[in-house]
Simulated assay, not measured.
Amino acid sequence: MTFEQLKQHVKTIINTNIKTVDERLLQICELLEMHIDYYNWVGFYFRNGNEEELILGPYIGEATDHTVIPFGKGICGQVAVSNQNFVVPDVTAQDNYIACSITVKAEIVIPIFVNGENVGQIDIDSNTPDPFTEADEQFLEFVCNQVSTILK
């Protein structure tokens, strides 16, 4: 399935008001992991109120011990501080990387903004070295924009 086709599915999931926000986020995780071969772990992290830490939200993939990530720690923690996309073609080249699994080779993290404030992010791990392109980045920005519409 192409990114354009996936966008339509994401919109449909977002607009399904009979499901909770978490159910819709999990459905998006499942959609992306199922239809993009090199997306091996897909999940959301959200700011924990006024604390400078992220809390794991819905995800699909291997279980992780990283349910709380301090701002600045790892790729997700760095995105919480920088408010910028972070594409990591080779996780072994990152000093501040939190290893979730020895099979992970690359990671991409895109922030989610509500009213200009970074409230969370989508985090994707890949077992394929250097798989993420500008098209992935643009697609995930679209996903994050859609998700921002259902967050309070």
Rank of each mutant, 00 (worst) to 15 (best):
E33R: 14
N17V: 05
Y38P: 00
Y45I: 05
I36M: 04
W41I: 00
L25D: 03
T20P: 06
E30M: 05
N17H: 15
C29N: 10
I18H: 14
M34P: 03
Q27I: 07
E30G: 12
I18F: 15
E23P: 05
I18Q: 13
G43F: 01
E23H: 09
F46A: 04
T20E: 04
F44L: 03
M34I: 00
N40F: 10
D22I: 12
Y39R: 02
D22A: 13
F44E: 01
R24C: 00
N17K: 15
E30C: 09
D37L: 03
T20Q: 04
I36W: 11
R24E: 02
C29E: 00
T20M: 04
F46C: 04
V21W: 13
I18S: 13
L25E: 02
R24K: 14
R24F: 14
Y39V: 02
K19H: 14
V21D: 12
I28T: 08
E23L: 06
I18D: 11
G43C: 02
E30R: 15
N40W: 10
Y38F: 14
K19E: 11
Y38V: 05
F44M: 08
M34F: 10
I28Y: 13
L25G: 01
D37M: 04
D37G: 02
C29H: 07
K19V: 11
E23R: 10
I36G: 04
